[in-house]
Structure formats: structure tokens, C-alpha cells
Design a binder for these strands. Sequence first.
DNA 1: ATATTAAATGCAACTATGTTGCAATACTAA
DNA 2: TTAGTATTGCAACATAGTTGCATTTAATAT
Lengths: 139, 139
Amino acid sequence: MFNPQKQAEEMIRRCGERVTTGRIQVLAILLAEQRAVTHHEIEKRLSDKPRLNRVTLYRVLEWLNEKCFVHKVVGDDRIWHFRANSPTTYHQHAHFECMRCTRVVCLDDMKAEYDSPLPAGYQSREIELRVKGLCAECA
Amino acid sequence: MFNPQKQAEEMIRRCGERVTTGRIQVLAILLAEQRAVTHHEIEKRLSDKPRLNRVTLYRVLEWLNEKCFVHKVVGDDRIWHFRANSPTTYHQHAHFECMRCTRVVCLDDMKAEYDSPLPAGYQSREIELRVKGLCAECA
DNA sequence: ATATTAAATGCAACTATGTTGCAATACTAA
DNA sequence: TTAGTATTGCAACATAGTTGCATTTAATAT
């Protein structure tokens, strides 16, 4: 059975860096969540436990991103949304963004295509597809 | 020969809304520019003439966007970038974003594909492709 | 041309997301 | 257990963008 807390701790321990309760809790929250969530949403989910400082949360998220446990997307609300990485989400990002509620959903099974060549000298490292529209609840 | 100022005025006049020097100047700047530029960059280009107020510039840009003279994209720097629309850019956006200098370039001739279906009940209104990497100068 | 009126502008103050420097604390290894 | 370094918390800051309201200006009617 699925225990995000334990899994998070295991993942962080295995990478050889410092294991802190903050990192575990935040990663656990993101593992349990099936979508990209904002700093603010994570803060709310941390509210019962001894709350992590706002700044620390930002730094933890940045760290998780650097270590590739997580990736981040910015939506039309100009706010970072974080989501736990799974093998499929790693280098191909497709996200759906609701134009009404600004909810961000990850579309893992996409196949982003880009036919035309880039301008001369340009190098592509990552491709991100953003589909905007209305989610089921707002449609 | 290409006169952005005149063309901008003509476009705004034809849409039947108020023609103001602010709107003309900003649209002219965006027409002359071949890429997506930030509020800040536009402000610099306005510096010789009697400068538009910061807030007004935001409102002019918002207005130009609503009237579809312009579209906006947010980059990884979480800043809005604006670009004049041409028929091709209208409903298909593809942008290249340099990971080093954060320059945003529009790739007009893309053909974004999205194979998988959206989750049930979701509606797509717009598709945006973001290719991240290094531009010619930073590569 | 002048007056009228609604829309656009300028100003000041504000909001929100995210950052930085530094002192205090906690994790790891010896 | 102790030492040393990485992480955390706090306060102050930076920046992009917004809001309310008084003033000005573009379009319209006289």
C-alpha cells in the first residue's frame, strides 16, 4: 500500500543528501497529489504539523526541483506550480490549464511534436506543451 | 515601405475604439519588433517621447490583448511578454525561450500536435508550445 | 468652434510572489 | 558526544502587476 511519507523519505535518503522533515513532508505531499500545486496550496496542507517557514518552503521546492524529484511550471497566473516527477513526466511536459479556475493538470501521456526547425544556432533542451481551455468542472 | 506608426493608427482606427497616442505608440513598437517583449523593454523604447505612465502601459497592453492586436506569453521568468499578432500567430503559439538570457522568440511556422485525448469533460481552447534551450548568442 | 460625456490616463498606495543576508538550529560523520 | 556544514527562520527587500479615484482627453453633439 501507498505511503507517501515513507516513499519520500526513502527517495531523499537514497540520493545521499541531507534528510530533513521539511523535505520529506513537502515531497510526500507532492507524491500524494496527482497534479501540479502551488506553494500556497502546499502551505495549506502543511498547516496541522509544525508549519514550515514560507521561505524554507520555497527553498525546499527549489531543492526538490534541482534534484529532479519535482518539476515546476508557470501558469497564466504567473505562479509556480510544482509536481512530483515520475519517469514519464521527466523530460516531456504537457499541462492543461483551466482558463477559469487556473487549475493546472499534468497530461503525462502526450506526445509533443515540433516539426519546423529552430532558427540557426538555436538549441532545444526541453519542450513544453500547454493546452488551455476549461476543465470538467468549469466547462 | 513599412511605417509601424501609421499602420498601428490605421489598425486601431478601423476597430472603432478610441484612438490614443499611447495605444498607437505601443502597438507601433510591437509591430516593429519581431519578437515577444516585456513591459520593461517597451517602456525603454518609449523613453524619448513623453513617457507613458507605467500603469497606463499595463492597461494599454491589456487592451491590445483583448482586441487581439497582440498576444501575451509568460516565460520562466514569470514575466509577461507581448507580441503583435499576425494572421499566423493568432491561434497557434509556439515560443522559444532561452534558458540563459530569458529572451523569448516566437516560432510562427510551427505545427503543434497533441495526440492523446484530454481527460473527460475537458475542453481545449488554445495550444501553446514552449521550446526551451539556448539561443544562438548563448549557445 | 464649443460644450458634453464617457473613456483613458496619471498618481499613490497596495497586493502577492518570490528573494537575500544573517543568525540560530539540526543533520551527519568522526 | 562533539564538530562542522547544511538547512532553517526571521526580517527586510525586490519586482510585476493591480486598484481606486481624481484629472485629462478623444469623440460626439450642439
